[in-house]
Nucleic acid binder design. Structure first.
Lengths: 331, 331
DNA sequence: CGCGCGGACTAGAACGTTCTAGAGTCGATC
DNA sequence: GATCGACTCTAGAACGTTCTAGTCCGCGCG
């Protein structure tokens, strides 16, 4: 059924309507230069023949593609929120998005490679582990904006959340509730964990609580949180800030199994506002990243670079926001 | 920096290497018809000039695109698992994937439209609410495979899980544990809920438990599950099968707050094996869909249609699998 | 009456590939 | 020594658009 039949092209429509190909092109684009009557007739014929423009041919001819490549990881729920924001932002400035996913068996290089062949005008990379040198190599070809990670290279733009500030917001919230013995569960070597840890330190010092500083090894997974909870058994603090939500969930689980009441005996703050942290059953107080702001800024950085505007600020840092739910309460 | 400089093309490489454009094309494709020495030299030049093939031009010329369009919803975690499987399957048969996302502010029509312009050879649609008539309209243009929903139209292929069987597996599991008073929380009008409800009925009858059949109104969300739990307060059954995991989570939460022990007092089975159901804190027994099988079958259906193979089986139904975790136990 | 002007339309070249057909070279076979 | 085949390479058309540079026509104006 779909075997031999070529798709209808401008030429088909032109022949049927008895006009030139160029004129049909004009009509289809809504460009000026066609009479009202002809325009009407051409559109009718196009509809009747089921004409669909071929974006490849279109873009091939007109140098610009107005196409932005996005690399995201299917495993990271936050990336999906970000995609939503990015589609919105792209629509506003008249760009299209093409997506390329990273999966457990499809790495970033493959994903980026695919987008380069699609002749995107810029790349937006969510997180990822590509080395600065590799990124620079890509950035020599076309503008690259990375999100949710830091990159020290003048050709690579960065849009990220102020993790340093986020940790401080968590601590401030706990201190306001009367907590003093506040521990922090670390993220290990993962991107962002150093900043979150430093923010914790900073806030504790600011509140004159340096003597109560306590940092436990953790990680990005539930099991890391569970291990940290076990380590807390001797003399638990009254509150904990945790590297991320998943880790916080593992911690919470062990605490509750140990018979502790949350937030009665101990308060917990996560980080990321992952979708599951909203579940009534988990109901985790956490630090949320401002998705729309991040998407908007990433997009405008990309467009500025494409259009050759001077780069005023290579690194954009967005303040996060505390979301208070049920895992924090008075000391 | 990225302003005036055209990207390097085959012609540039050809000129620099002192050969014809056609030969460079041959070398870049790894096609036979070039001497070893020249091949080497051309590759070197291409690398030096940073040549990147232009997939648009390439595909434009060679009628085939070997491109499959995929429409997924950013909000649905299960779609991401499926994407992973689909990338794998596509890689195996030499097809590329282009993704188009549905977001809260970007609907299915927009997503499909974009893919049509990219000249995909077939479309794979995850779930979605498009009406059969609309789907048929698209399917008249190119092969369409829908997943995780039923469509009664001879041009639209379907790959889905056997929800009828899944519900029965849940009931069988509970009966094997000694449960007899087993209730079902319904999904309301959502796709798939009728089948899951019927499977429950069927299994209860098969086990001679028709007198204990009890169906409660529910839905897809946590709050629906919470409401169902409240409705159970007078004379709770010893076990419940629930429309999906999110709903089950809401139910669980209320049950536990009511002081019931799960699975001591009551067992709960969810449906979908959503990522959060694996969290230690939730640890939900559930019915999992076979992602790899679904992806594989969807892909082979698409390819068969593209290549004009006779359609032997329009609807592929994959059996689901029970995943036993911590929310079920002996009666 | 000739000229210029603007609107409607068209021919044909581009865009960067791939594909078809064929040209040239060299060594082996008859 | 002519013919063949294999191999390497090339010229040029094609894909479906958009863009540039027109042509054609009618009309108003000097």
């Amino acid at each position: 059924m779909h075997a031999g039949d070529r798709r209808t092209t401008l030429a088909d429509v032109a022949a049927e309507a008895g006009v030139s190909v160029a004129l049909v092109s004009i009509v289809m684009r809504g460009a000026p230069g066609a009479g009202a009557a002809t325009r009407e007739r051409v559109l009718e014929v196009a509809r009747r023949l089921g004409y669909q423009p071929d974006s490849r041919a279109r873009l091939l001819r007109s140098g610009r593609t107005r196409l932005l490549g996005v690399v995201f990881d299917v495993r990271h729920p936050f990336h999906h929120d970000l995609l939503t924001g990015l589609y919105d932002a792209a629509g506003r400035v008249g760009y299209e998005l093409t997506l390329s996913a990273v999966t457990p068996r499809r790495d970033e290089h493959t994903a980026v490679e695919g987008l380069l062949q699609d002749r995107c005008e810029a790349l937006v990379l969510f997180g990822g582990r590509m080395r600065t040198a590799e990124l620079a190599g890509v950035a020599a070809r076309l503008p690259v904006v990375t999100m949710m990670r830091g990159v020290r290279h003048r050709d690579v733009d960065v849009v990220r959340t102020d993790d340093h500030l986020g940790s401080q917001q968590a601590v401030d919230h706990l201190v306001a509730l009367g907590h003093r013995r506040i521990a922090h569960v670390d993220g290990g070597g993962i991107h962002g964990s150093a900043e979150r840890r430093l923010g914790y330190h900073e806030a504790m010092r600011r509140h004159g609580l340096s003597e109560h500083v306590r940092v436990l090894p953790g990680g990005a997974g539930e099991e890391d949180g569970a291990r940290a909870a076990a380590a807390l058994r001797d003399g638990p603090p009254t509150a904990v800030t945790v590297f991320n939500d998943l880790c916080a969930t593992g911690l919470l689980d062990v605490l509750r199994r140990d018979g502790l009441d949350v937030p009665g005996d101990i308060s917990v703050v996560g980080y990321d506002d992952s979708s599951f942290s909203r579940l009534a059953h988990i109901d985790l107080t956490t630090i949320a990243q401002d998705v729309d702001a991040m998407a908007g800024r990433a997009l405008s950085r990309a467009v500025e670079r494409i259009e050759g505007a001077p780069v005023t600020q290579r690194e954009v840092v967005i303040p996060p926001r505390l979301v208070v739910r049920g895992t924090t309460g008075p000391a």
